[in-house]
């Protein structure tokens, strides 16, 4: 069982779009994916160490040559070089040798709890 840590209120995330907190000595962010699901992800890009959680959340685009299709997969794009990370798995989709930590998140009485 993870140790659930209270990292802020849902209202904070609704207001700021994200939360960035320090948990067990590491910076962790909580962001909302396009379906309204809260995702916890480490605030450090494994590429060059950029503040990953300050990046943009979006839906990954796929498709055959010449065709653009939404994939239903929500990603976070590092604000430094734009590399794209899967919010569910932490995997860097464009460089699969890289992955960052993801954390379970749940909401209780308007509070955001991060499983660390």
């Amino acid at each position: 069982m993870p140790n659930w840590v209270d990292v802020g209120s849902v209202a904070d995330i609704e207001r700021d779009g994200r939360l960035v907190v320090r948990v067990n000595g590491r910076e962790v962010g909580v962001v909302t994916d396009g379906k309204g699901v809260l995702r916890g992800i480490r605030n450090r890009c494994p590429h060059h160490g950029g503040p990953l959680c300050l990046g943009r959340v979006g839906e990954r685009v796929g498709g055959d040559p010449g065709v653009y299709e939404l994939t239903g997969r929500w990603t976070l794009r590092c604000p430094w070089h734009g590399w794209e990370f899967d919010l569910e798995t932490g995997l860097c989709l464009d460089e699969p040798t890289l992955r960052t930590a993801v954390y379970p998140v749940r909401v209780e009485d308007g509070r955001v709890l991060l499983g660390a």
């Binding site: 990954r60 685009v61 796929g62 498709g63 055959d64 040559p65 010449g66 065709v67 653009y68 299709e69 070089h81 734009g82 590399w83 794209e84 464009d94 460089e95």
Partner: peptide, 10 residues
């Protein structure tokens, strides 16, 4: 490509 793949997502 890692940064701009969304332009050429295929």
């Amino acid at each position: 490509w890692r940064a701009l793949r969304s332009e050429v997502p295929w």
